[in-house]
Design a protein around this nucleic acid. Structure first.
Lengths: 399, 399
DNA sequence: GGGATTTGCCGTCAAGAGCAACAAATACCC
DNA sequence: GGGTATTTGTTGCTCTTGACGGCAAATCCC
């Protein structure tokens, strides 16, 4: 695969990079005028015009009549991504596989939650995805150009080949998910960890928009995962396993704060313990947040404060090492943070090196239940966005 | 011919990038043939020829007669960086300021340790540097082209303006070191944290050569600092404070392992505690290593094992989050690791997520006492290497 | 010494971004 | 409502600079 980077030295590489820049802008910022594209890219008017028409010819963007604006001067046509360019986003969970078609405009076109009454296997997942595509092809996706498939898997995924090394709750071990889905769908497929993709989504479209250095932590029923963005780039690490905050061991200064013998973050800061303290077997996130906020039981406040303290230490460690400008918390960690934001801020400030915490913001994730699908779609779009010309070689036709 | 094209094609700097690539190769790999440059860059023969002669004209590289090789075919001239292109590297410490001139070939040309009998101030540092340059100008540096100054400061340095926010041992607070040194020397100056620059040096020329994802930790007399390289790039974070591992709080599972009330890594894993356990007030690193290795006192082994355990947890946390392929340990952490590498490996493997630790290597830093100077020099060379043409606007005074 | 091989050198080509002049479309002022 | 200013698309041209190909040079091997 000839990546753009390989050819950066050539003019061809420049051209491709410019195409990529334009497409990415239209993708991330939504429809924008050609005039804004020129100022945003720093390229010449005529260059942008040529590039835009090239993208139109490639079927990747559309040019519309200018939006009515109140400004002087000739109105500039609006460039928007082509709505027919889409990917399939997949999120297998213990009780269901969610499949969606997502447009290049990051909008979800179709979304279906396919419930299963047993633990889904990798093969079943591939079949479910292929089945959904086949069904949608006859209606919602008629005439749509599918670029690829992206999967958000709750487990550790090897970046190089999309092998799911271990997904404890799905009970998948060394599952060749990428190959299976590619075989079943005929579409180029990418697989990654769900929390990492959540970080990607929040970075591009959520609470982390425009922030170049951030840490994202998500609290799920099964544990804590996350991702990091450094200099605007999502960090995968050597093999793609980066972001596993849940298995970290943060310092616990007071012995009374320790609950789990091993002191792993996700055993100490856990949704199950919150449910337990309010005496519920299960609850969705808003319900849990409501219960926690309404409770006057001191044990509830104690537990929340304890979890905040430990989370603060884990965050402090990350802040010292990465010096991010933003921390985004999702899932029950958002609930935990919002229960008493000031206390969390103070605890983090106390646990991190003062200069590293300067100007740091802690925010709650913005994207809702579609976060993982958006992230998975982004993964599937990545190649196209990086090099809009490369995709033309592949013929993405599926019955 | 081939005079510098001042009319910089407002083009996307393909040309500049290619010049940069060539110069960086010559800088990092040492002298290499033009033929190797072509294969390494993927550029055309004629293109490389043009670029190389341009770099020669810029006075940045030299072309020599071909090295005698035993291979068939016309021999290719050797391209080597110009020995007269140098920077000044500076490392202020509590009892001395080390100043050196470092060539673009990463060789140290002159090096002087300027002892001081009191805590050196930022102003004094600038004066000492300027004085050294003035002295050297008359001999070692006659005719040398100085590109800039790089400082490795043991403290937290704000990336944007080179302000030393806090250097506890030097007792500097908000010291405008960059401005002071620039004023005193007339040379463009860069400042960064010493451990971060150590990471840079080890990454480019030491134990981390060719590794794209690594974590570097250095144990000094005063604490533990470090740096991280992600996708081949040194991570600074939002403001440049990244890498402060020493202030992290790792989990300490056994209460008996805790020594410091606050549980900060550098209070638990500390050179002072090692010196104490062998009953010495001070010792240089080889001496300390010898004493530790020779001791049969069980208390020594206990302390070493304890520090290894805690270090392993801190490393495990970093591994889970960053999934590096290499960890480089310097200073007394190297001593600690080498005392029993297998035990450390095992402890790290036990503390990190198995997949994240797969294929992980733990190595000892390779560069010796010149590490910080090399790193500081690299910092000073960075702008030139990134864009060899930009530097031409500045006329660095000579003689 | 001849053939093979590799590489430098030079002239030519061409991709593609920049540029400038002109035209078009709007707002604003009178 | 018409003239002017302003912004931006369009078009044809220039120019930089990397690629290409033929030829010469320098080496090794037989």
């Amino acid at each position: 695969m000839a990546s753009v980077v390989d050819r950066l030295g050539t003019f061809d590489g420049v051209h491709r990079r410019n195409l990529s820049k334009l497409l990415a802008l239209a993708h991330l910022e939504g429809p924008l005028s050609r005039a804004r594209l020129t100022s945003e890219t720093g390229l010449n008017r005529s260059t942008v015009a040529a590039l835009a028409t090239e993208l139109v010819d490639l079927g990747l963007v559309e040019e519309r009549a200018p939006d009515p604006t109140k400004r002087v001067g000739r109105p500039s046509p609006v460039v928007a991504v082509h709505p027919g360019v889409q990917v399939i986003a997949v999120n297998p969970e213990v009780d269901a596989v969610t499949v969606a078609a997502v447009g290049l405009n990051a909008r979800i076109v179709v979304r279906e939650r396919l419930e299963v009454d047993h633990l889904v296997t990798p093969d079943e997942t591939a079949e479910l995805v292929a089945g959904a595509i086949a069904r949608w092809r006859r209606a919602e996706l008629a005439g749509v150009r599918l670029i690829g498939v992206g999967l958000a898997v709750p487990g550790q995924v090897r970046h190089s080949d999309g092998l799911v090394r271990w997904a404890p709750h799905l009970e998948w071990t060394d599952a060749p998910v990428r190959a299976l889905v590619e075989a079943a769908t005929g579409l180029p497929t990418q697989v990654a960890n769900d929390a990492t993709l959540g970080a990607r989504a929040e970075h591009l479209f959520g609470a982390g928009r425009g922030v170049d250095d951030l840490v994202y932590l998500n609290g799920g029923a099964s544990g804590i995962g996350g991702g990091l963005v450094v200099e605007g780039r999502l960090v995968g690490g050597a093999r793609g396993y980066a972001g596993e905050f849940g298995q970290n061991r943060p310092g616990i200064s007071s012995a009374g704060d320790r609950r789990a013998p091993d002191g792993v973050l996700e055993d100490e800061v856990s949704r199950a313990r919150l449910l337990e303290v309010v005496g519920r077997a299960s609850a969705d996130e808003p319900t849990l947040a409501g219960l926690l906020a309404a409770s006057e039981d001191p044990a509830v406040a104690d537990e929340l404060a304890r979890q905040q303290r430990i989370l603060a230490t884990a965050l402090g460690n990350a802040i010292n090492v990465l010096n991010p400008s933003l921390i985004v918390l999702g899932g029950f960690l958002a609930t935990l943070a919002e229960w008493n934001p000031d206390a969390l801020d103070a605890a983090v400030a106390a646990q991190a090196l003062p200069v590293a915490a300067e100007g740091l913001e802690i925010r709650v994730a913005e994207l809702g239940e579609n976060r993982l699908l958006i992230g998975a779609a982004e993964l599937a779009f990545a190649d196209l966005l990086a090099d809009p010309l490369a995709e033309q070689l592949v013929d993405p036709l599926v019955g």
